[in-house]
Design a protein around this nucleic acid. Sequence first.
DNA 1: ATATGTAATTTTGAATTCAAAATGCAGTCA
DNA 2: TGACTGCATTTTGAATTCAAAATTACATAT
Lengths: 228, 228
Amino acid sequence: MNLTQSPEPISRRSLHEELVARLRTMIVDGTMAPGMKVPEKDLCERFAVSRTPLREALKVLAADGLVYLEPNRGAWVTELTESEVSEVFPVLGALEALSGELACENIMDEELAALRQHHDQMILSYKEQDLDGYFQANQRIHAGILSAARNETLVVQCEALSARMQRARYVANISEDRWVEAVSEHEEIIAALEAKDGKALGEILKKHMYNKQLSILKWLDANRETAA
Amino acid sequence: MNLTQSPEPISRRSLHEELVARLRTMIVDGTMAPGMKVPEKDLCERFAVSRTPLREALKVLAADGLVYLEPNRGAWVTELTESEVSEVFPVLGALEALSGELACENIMDEELAALRQHHDQMILSYKEQDLDGYFQANQRIHAGILSAARNETLVVQCEALSARMQRARYVANISEDRWVEAVSEHEEIIAALEAKDGKALGEILKKHMYNKQLSILKWLDANRETAA
DNA sequence: ATATGTAATTTTGAATTCAAAATGCAGTCA
DNA sequence: TGACTGCATTTTGAATTCAAAATTACATAT
């Protein structure tokens, strides 16, 4: 038998891996709300697994900062506090800035073209006031820059921290003012990218992150008493 | 009863937490060498625990990138490859740069004084060619800057990535040339810190990291055939 | 009624068990 | 000799079990 192009290996997934992915999604999209006790027994029944793999998954999510464990008391979904937001965003800003610099060095023409399309799509969604479409295009742009940076470690770190903040973005409905501002920042982003100006792109992405932070902090502050 | 200053909660540790800490140490200090299969049964006997908590710990270490898991085949200590080093150091550089900037904003006088002492101690160790003392002082300086940044998330991220690189630092014996260079960089670091020049400190720390990367890559390259 | 003490129940942490998968080892045949 | 096959052994993944800890419910006393 001659296998010139070897087929990709059959990827197998252990139960706990699958559970990590599922639970992460549930936390990020708000199905499991911040502050909520993780219902171990419930989840076991729902996913039809025993406690062993579920608990393994919870340990991993705890290391990621999405849940916290209290010995002998169980697991809770982490709250999104002001102080956490104020800690995570600067770190995310530094990492996105790096991703911008690296992307300018390594991006390929087809990738750049795809990003330009996503950008135009995003502008279109904004003009039609289509928030879902906007979010999706926005997501794709950031993912595209990150992947163009050619640094898997950076991807992993960014995604882990983003996941922790994502929950807020789902709930925090963007204000019209912030939306206008974000769109204008994105014009700068695509411009810097097309000019391959890494330094500038890094700065803009950092600023972009900082503004997101402010917008979320504002929302958190406004909803503080509501939640409590 | 009036508890004006509430006592700190009694901290308890589950077995798996303890195991994560112990195994991490064993991997970082080289007791478990890169590339080695993790001897599950052995470790269980050695620590006198069952497989359940040990395996939970391995999942966490895998999420940290210190081991990798192959389904149905077990766990291995991750190798330190050129590509991993080339990925992790830039990320670490960006994070250390951030820590420098934040430290300049937030450091207190006593902390600065302590760092100056560690620095002087480090110079002394260098003059006496005391590598252990030098490493220790060096470690304390970086930890001190990080803690002065007042950002727990940043600390966690830096420590996780540092742990992955630390193994190399243990094995890679610093060259005399690199040592001279590192000492001179540290003079710049303490100067920027005392001048509270965040931008400059960030730049130097980033450069410092980059030079460490080069030095480790050189070592890896020289030892490539030895290890294989 | 509120606070304290006690027993029953539930939940958690970790050991054990069990089935599936991988590995190692003979024995067979070219 | 060398590679393939089938069987025994080991290792792994996950369910189950069991003891310890926490929670709840209830009774009693102030």
